[in-house]
Amino acid sequence: MRDCLIIIPAYNEERNIKKVLSGLKKSHHSLDILVVNDGSTDNTEAIAVAEKARVLSLPFNLGYGGALQAGFKYAVLEGYRYVIQFDGDGQHDPEDVKTILELLELGNDIVIGSRFLGRGSFKAGILKKTAINIFRLIIKASTGVKVTDPSSGLQGLSRRAFSYYSRMGHFPHDYPDADVLIQMILAGFKVVEFPAEIRAREAGRSMHAGLRPVFYFIKMLISILVVLLRSRFKAKG
């Protein structure tokens, strides 16, 4: 069984992907890297190939969750023990990969790099802070587990966790968030957080921009409610 695959979902990241890949190469010689090119219309694919990363190219844009799930499927087929999801926009620090691996080796299923545990220079607006606080409260109340950064894109997953995600219908199209975490904790997966260094985006537009957050927040509340209902029904029979 192979060790660890770093999955980088990338949609039009030609300005960032080279730096991200060379940063990872510099600090981690023994890890495989898979760039999931999510239907980019720019040179993301060519740059990733030139950097000698494996590239899984989707024929059209599936969205962040769809791209990640494609990576999980690949990791299952290739027999990896762990995967680490890493953003292609330069926000994550390659040094954190080491910490994730250590925590996975300890038997954790989901290791989350949190922006809110002291390290890092991440600043969120008041609305975003409120939304995150609400999600934290819901997670704590429904599972008893404290998670400070449910939407973090920097995560390590055990084979048990990513095999589960890789199956049809087990992972959202857009952004996995508090809903997915609650579902996993209730299903008995072990979740742990560590303080991660998350930088501001170096180039390009963030995926959480515009009027979307409002719609996203409501959708997430409904999604959490559905997860809780589903687990209740399952418990009963």
């Binding site: 494996r54 190219s57 989707l58 024929p59 769809g66 494609a70 499927k73 087929l77 199209h173």
Partner: peptide, 13 residues
């Protein structure tokens, strides 16, 4: 469609 797209991409790779 999502499932097929992912499988197709992996097969092609």
């Amino acid at each position: 469609v999502k499932e097929l797209t992912q499988r197709l991409a992996i097969e092609q790779m």
